[in-house]
Write a protein that binds this DNA or RNA. Structure first.
Lengths: 205, 205
DNA sequence: CCAGGGAGTTTACACAGTGTCGATTTTTAT
DNA sequence: ATAAAAATCGACACTGTGTAAACTCCCTGG
């Protein structure tokens, strides 16, 4: 891929052989995660899939958890880029619709890794932090929309921040389940969540 | 508890020695779950805590997962008893308040095992079913309240059943996190969820 | 009373997966 | 061309799981 015409004085071929391997490992890991799940997947499996031995894999990652953590980090990185590119619409109704649509796409594209991240959040502290940070991005965004829709700001149980948190968990969990079923279910789940979000924001149709 | 005065002709001492051990194993498992978490907890630890050897434990349970499954089953059994005793209030507002209060108590008493059940729902199919069934009880109850509050019945994305599902996941996830923090957080989380539930039911203020 | 059987227990073993290490080969930069 | 750095391998030690055969205890029917 990206055949190198390697123009004059191009930046060093900084593409170490190891970088390719590392990517191969992560890709294999993602594939195996889909095929057998985290527990059944063994370090030997990953190494074999990447075309190396277990011993060689430990040159790149310190453990199975490290591999998965790296995979989550890679995926979550995409989410962050994506979310930075969010056009800040003024109208809350539009903002909500746009956010839900974007979230559906996110889960369609990365559902597997996101579910894995959630599952391992407890047991692997590193992943927990990664996912917490991601959730905070969402909560902050939801809070902003709620406040713009007229919900009282502040952290009291019935004001914007706390509500945003609950709504975020609602979306996470609902999408978590729906994304295991089918794209159609995800779309329906999205509609339901959007409706509750709108209602909670006082934007009753 | 329930000290046996063992009246005349009492039912056989159906209390086999093994029954006591079995309970001891489950109790130990619950304690260890709190202290070290599922992954770190080893079969040897459980056996030791229960005062027997690993080998003996395998006489009672086929595996570590089996032990935890039994523990979850025991706890979830309590939930079901508890929920059967629900007084069906007419007024939706009261019903919602009562349900949330009950849920707070549930999580205060059994938060640890409930969190464990949720975490293992994927990896241990048995536990997944147990928890799914429990969730269905809640969803059914929420659906009933929504409908009595005037939300259109049916399974379309914005009607009662789907909304109940989303609200159930919201509560599950919010309580899951809050119950890890403190009783105060749980109480606050409850207030937030109640507020969103009320709003979604069209019972604004 | 006492033999036999089932419940309960132990010790030893086989196995699978993890992580480490030193030796060795392959890349890469000069 | 060559030496250092990067990458790879195979063997090893360790931990945890699950199984099996043998042993003990105790209860119960004759």
């Amino acid at each position: 891929m990206t055949s190198g015409h390697d123009p004059v004085r191009s930046r060093r071929t900084t593409e170490r052989k190891g970088d390719v391997r590392e990517r191969a490992i992560l890709d294999t890991c993602e594939a195996l995660l889909a095929r057998k799940g985290y527990d059944a997947m063994t370090v030997g499996d990953i190494a074999q899939g990447a075309g190396i031995t277990r011993g060689a894999l430990y040159f790149y990652f310190g453990s199975k958890q490290d591999v998965v953590t790296a995979l989550v980090a890679r995926t979550v990185g995409h989410l962050w880029e994506r979310s930075r590119a969010t056009a800040q619409t003024e109208d809350p109704r539009q903002a909500i619709a746009a956010a839900m649509q974007r979230t559906v796409e996110l889960w369609n594209a990365h559902g597997l890794v996101m579910r894995t991240a959630i599952d391992l959040s407890l047991t692997v502290p590193e992943i927990g932090e990664l996912w917490n940070h991601t959730a905070d991005l969402f909560i902050t965004a939801i809070t902003a929309v709620l406040e713009r829709a007229g919900i009282q700001p502040g952290t009291a149980p019935e004001h914007a921040a706390a509500m945003a948190r609950a709504l975020c968990w609602m979306i996470e969990r609902t999408f978590y389940h729906a994304s295991q079923e089918s794209r159609e279910k995800l779309q329906e789940a999205s509609a339901t969540c959007e409706h509750i979000w709108l209602t909670s924001a006082g934007l009753t149709a």
